[in-house]
C-alpha cells in the first residue's frame, strides 16, 4: 500500500471518528433533553452522525482489504488511536453548550461537505453528497436555537456566552491541517479546511452580532486530535461507549 492509500484510510477514519464521537455525545441527551420533541430531535441528529461514521468506516475497511470491521474501528481502539477533532469530544455540558457546538459544526459541515462533494474519490464524494443535505437540515434547527437562547432570559444569554467562551479555544483546530492531510489535498481527495476559516468566522460573527453576542477571537488554539492527542474527556467517553465490546468481546445484537 502506498502513502496515498494509507493517508486516505487515515483521513476516512478521522472523519468517521469526528462523527461517531459527536454522535455519542448527542445520544447522551436521549431521555434528558428539555422536552420530548427536543429529545427526539437530538437523537435523530445523533443517528445521522452514526450513519455518517459508518459510511466513512466502511469505506476505510474496504480500502484496507477487509482486515477488520467497522465495529473493530469504533469499539476496539483506545483514545490515542482516535483522531477526531477535539471540538466533537467535549462533554455535552448544558443545553446551550450543546446547541452552540452544534451550530458551529453545522455551519462548518455545510461548507466542508459541499467542497468534499468535488473530491476526486467517487465514494468520498458520494458520502459527502449524502451527508451535506443532512447538515443543512441540522443547521435550520441549531441556528434558531442560538437566537432564541441569546435573546431569551438573562440566564440563557449568560449560558450562551459561557459556551462561546469555552468553545473558542477549540474552534482554531477545525481549520488546522496536518501534513499528511495536505498531501491528500494535493491529489484532490481531501479539502483544505484552512480555506474555510475566513468564511466561517464572518458568517458566525455576523450571526452572533445580530443577537448582540460576541465571539472572542481566541489566540489559544488547542490542537492534537488528528494525531491522537485528546482532552481528558475522550477516554471517559470511550470507556462508556466501548464497555460492552470490551467486557464481552465479539458480542452481537
Amino acid at each position: 500500500m502506498n502513502d496515498k492509500q494509507q493517508n486516505t484510510i487515515r483521513f476516512l477514519i478521522g472523519l468517521g471518528d469526528d462523527s461517531v464521537v459527536l454522535s455519542h455525545r448527542l445520544s447522551e441527551w436521549c431521555s434528558n433533553a428539555p422536552y420530548l420533541e427536543e429529545d427526539i430531535a437530538l437523537s435523530n441528529i445523533a443517528l445521522d452522525y452514526i450513519g455518517r461514521a459508518r459510511m466513512f468506516y466502511q469505506y476505510a475497511v474496504e480500502l484496507e482489504g477487509n482486515k477488520r470491521t467497522e465495529d473493530d474501528i469504533a469499539y476496539l481502539r483506545n483514545e490515542r488511536q482516535y483522531t477526531n477533532l477535539l471540538i466533537h469530544e467535549l462533554p455535552i455540558n448544558d443545553f446551550a453548550f450543546t446547541m452552540v457546538r452544534q451550530y458551529f459544526l453545522d455551519v462548518f459541515y455545510c461548507e466542508y461537505l459541499k467542497l468534499l462533494c468535488d473530491s476526486s474519490d467517487e465514494q468520498i464524494s458520494a458520502i459527502a453528497n449524502k451527508a451535506v443535505k443532512e447538515s443543512r437540515y441540522h443547521l435550520k434547527r441549531s441556528q434558531p436555537w442560538i437566537t432564541q437562547l441569546a435573546e431569551g432570559t438573562s440566564e440563557s444569554k449568560e449560558r450562551i456566552q459561557l459556551a462561546l467562551d469555552e468553545l473558542e479555544n477549540f474552534v482554531g483546530e477545525m481549520f488546522l491541517m496536518e501534513d499528511w492531510e495536505l498531501m491528500l489535498v494535493d491529489s484532490g481527495i481531501a479539502v483544505d479546511r484552512k480555506n474555510l476559516e475566513a468564511n466561517w468566522n464572518s458568517e458566525v460573527q455576523a450571526f452572533l452580532n445580530k443577537s448582540e453576542m460576541c465571539f472572542p477571537d481566541s489566540q489559544l488554539q488547542i490542537r492534537g486530535g488528528r494525531n491522537g492527542i485528546h482532552t481528558e474527556h475522550l477516554g471517559h467517553m470511550l470507556s462508556e461507549m466501548q464497555y460492552i465490546q470490551r467486557s464481552m468481546p465479539g458480542l452481537e445484537w
Binding site: 443517528l47 450513519g51 455518517r52
Partner: peptide, 8 residues
C-alpha cells in the same frame, strides 16, 4: 440506496 445515512 439508503434514505437517510443512519436509517436503521
Amino acid at each position: 440506496t439508503p434514505t437517510y445515512s443512519g436509517c436503521p
